[in-house]
């Protein structure tokens, strides 16, 4: 981050501290997992959309950020997209190291993606003590329900068995996407907020004023639709 160098004096410190206290901003690392073509990127774009006022030209949608404001805290989601091709399966554990939440995405119209999602899950479980990370199973492409190969029931059963959260969405129509993000935010906040220091506070750039405007924020990266 190339922000201009900040001259810290005693006055501004106190000032900042008193203004910052009421609403904390925490950074949350969210990893998107799933085979290629299940709509991870579209989902990520959906997550990043609405809030983005384009401040810099879009380069990619592999890394996006999104602010979610809850009643007592603001979460700054950092969304990490991963390469879904089977070839890169062996290197993906590097991505979800230190993630607070992992989204397992499959395509309801392609059974093989559902099978692959279970493989990802196995890998994830190897790395994590259950309960420390919010894992969410997502059946995407809900708009293709006439070609459905994986029933909602199946997804729900798998999620219940493995203690996951489950949602069916459509990144195309935007169905359930905003709701999903809010639910994730609440779960993450519950899970992590309890463990002290689970989330590191986001140290915003000097130009960010969290209280002047609650909706528009300058982001480091952004995506334009």
């Amino acid at each position: 981050m190339g922000e201009p160098f900040l001259r810290v004096t005693a006055e501004t410190q106190d000032h900042d501290a008193s203004r910052r206290r009421p609403v904390q901003t925490l950074r949350v690392k969210m990893v998107l997992l799933g085979s290629s073509g299940v709509g991870k990127s579209s989902l990520a774009l959906r997550f990043g959309k609405d809030q983005f006022r384009s401040t810099s030209p879009t380069v990619g949608c592999a890394y996006l950020t999104r602010m979610v404001h809850l009643s007592d805290v603001s979460l700054r989601f950092e969304i990490w997209d991963t390469a879904g091709q089977e070839t890169y399966h062996s290197v993906t554990p590097l991505y979800y190291r230190g993630a607070h939440t992992a989204l397992l995405v499959y395509d309801i119209s392609r059974r093989e993606t559902f099978v692959r999602a279970q493989l990802w899950l196995k890998e994830l479980e190897k790395q994590y003590i259950p309960g420390s990370t919010v894992i969410w199973l997502i059946g995407n492409k809900g708009d293709l329900s006439e070609d459905r190969q994986v029933t909602e029931q199946e997804g729900r059963i798998l999620a219940d068995e493995r203690n996951l959260f489950f949602t069916e969405t459509s990144a195309l129509s935007g169905d359930q996407v905003t709701e999903l993000l809010l639910m994730i935010a609440h779960r993450v906040n519950e899970h992590m907020g309890a463990q002290q220091g689970g989330l590191s506070e986001w140290r915003g750039t000097s130009c960010v004023d969290l209280h002047q405007n609650n909706n528009i924020k300058p982001f480091n990266t952004c995506c334009k639709m």
Binding site: V59, A62, G84
Partner: peptide, 23 residues
């Protein structure tokens, strides 16, 4: 990485996803 993203975007005429980026 930013240069790679630009290259992909010029080629594909849409923002690059991680599926394109890693290779």
């Amino acid at each position: 990485s930013k240069h790679i993203f630009s290259a992909i975007r010029i080629t594909k005429k849409e923002p690059a996803s991680a599926d394109d980026f890693l290779p």
